[in-house]
């Protein structure tokens, strides 16, 4: 069963590559616009070998880690404030949803004009990309703490800070984890948008550089890397953590 799924997936990729190779060999597109899979693969190997892709990747991860870390921190603070204070929620909750609906690429010109064409601007965009979704999910997490947990804890003499940290925080962990997973996803997209328009370093910048120099095989190679990292990080880290919490909390069987 497991093996047959794997087999299907491998065959699927194989077929795609074959079609790609076939279109290339038909000569319909000029080779400069449409490199064969082998050439893309070769470009990726070279990029890693000469260290260019590696340093771009490291720069991107640095932007992401700082930006996502800040987004999670700031988003959690805003979310807790809105979750705990009805006043704050009624006043600012709606605007948070509005902010969340702004595509992060829109922030790029603002960031560049405000901060300049540098890495800080990229990180700024990443932070904006992740903060709002984190805040919204943290707010939902606090609101979704079952009231019977609070009541039970209070009858056991728990109140104040202890009630918050020992009951409300752990009780809201499942939604909080979804928040982190979404913040990562949004930040990752924002990172690419920001880097694409920055002047480096970073994966997004390398992508635009390759475009400027008409290196289609590098463009495709980087797109593949971005896709692979996105799904691998989601599957191996964030989805896994979220599922683990959900299972322990009895929300998933």
């Amino acid at each position: 069963m497991k093996l047959s799924i794997l087999l299907k997936r491998v065959i699927f990729i194989g077929v795609l590559l074959a079609i790609w190779q076939g279109v290339y060999m038909s000569g319909y597109f000029p080779a400069i616009q449409f490199p064969p899979p082998t050439k893309v693969f070769q470009a990726m190997v070279e990029g890693f070998a000469d260290g260019k892709l590696v340093s771009a990747l490291l720069a991107s991860f640095k932007h992401l880690l700082i930006g996502l870390g800040l987004a999670i921190g700031i988003g959690t603070l805003i979310g807790v404030l809105l979750g705990k204070s009805r006043q704050a929620d009624e006043t600012a909750g709606m605007y948070l949803i509005a902010m969340q609906s702004i595509p992060s690429i829109v922030w790029v010109p603002l960031a560049i004009m405000l901060i300049g064409l540098n890495e800080t601007a990229v990180i700024f965009v990443v932070v904006l990309g992740g903060t709002f979704v984190m805040a919204l999910n943290t707010r939902t997490a606090i609101h979704s703490v079952p009231p019977e947990f609070i009541k039970a804890a209070r009858t056991m003499g728990t109140k104040g800070m202890r009630l918050f940290f020992k009951v409300e925080v752990p009780a809201s962990l499942p939604y909080f984890m979804s928040g982190i997973r979404l913040a990562w996803a949004f930040s990752w997209r924002a990172l690419m948008a920001g880097e694409l328009l920055s002047n480096g370093p970073g994966l997004g910048y390398s992508l635009r550089y390759a475009m400027d120099f008409a290196q289609m095989e590098v463009v495709i190679g980087i797109i593949i890397i971005v896709g692979v990292i996105g799904s691998v990080v989601d599957q191996l880290i964030f989805s896994k953590m979220e599922k683990k919490v959900m299972r322990r909390w009895g929300l998933l069987k």
Partner: peptide
């Protein structure tokens, strides 16, 4: 509320992130 009065609700309201033992010792912490 105070620890001189214990309450049991219709829903058990146990904390899912704690083991059975840690749930029982929760009011003692």
């Amino acid at each position: 509320p105070g620890t001189d009065r214990g309450m049991v609700f219709q829903q058990p309201a146990l904390f899912p992130w704690l083991t059975v033992r840690d749930n029982v010792t929760f009011p003692l912490k």
